[in-house]
Amino acid sequence: MEYSNSNPSPVKEYILSVLARNRAGVLLRIAGLFSRRCYNILSIVAAQTENTEYSRILIVVSGDDRIVRQVDKQLSKLIDIVQVDVLDRGRIVEREHLLLKVERTVQTSEKLVEIANVFHANILNVEPDSMILELTGDAGTINSFIELYNPYHVLRILRTGAMAMPK
């Protein structure tokens, strides 16, 4: 019998929900750990929780199953970290906030508004040559929204990164 190292599972995106003591440098510790262990952070969102002594940090990581288990265990070793949960994407609500600035011309204006309406996105600002839109949704919705605007020359995108909460 051969006990080979199991084949790596496919690379996916995982959402980690991290509860940390709200001490100076805790984000640096997390970011430093990711950097030196060569894990990829796709996005990170951090803020105080209902209890101001703690912060909740949502991290989207790309990697295979083995890597995400390593990330979980290495993070859990940090003294300031209280708990790490790898969220099951089927059992969470997931939200991300997007600001998108797109080029606007007389010819495209109507089309741009139409797409925004389809997504129930807000129009925050309109200038003669540009428009800023706002959308909240899961990663998939945000991605298709951006894709639809791409042909109209997107000038700038700002994404907050994913927030997620178990159901």
């Binding site: 019998m1 051969e2 006990y3 190292n5 199991s6 288990r69 390593q70 265990k73 859990s76």
Partner: peptide, 28 residues
Amino acid sequence: NAGLFARHCPIIQIEIDTAEFNKNIEVQ
């Protein structure tokens, strides 16, 4: 070479640091 280390037999690892399990080699 981690890929060639004790691959014909099972490994039991006794270790206090969880992060050392399945880090450099998979154990049974």
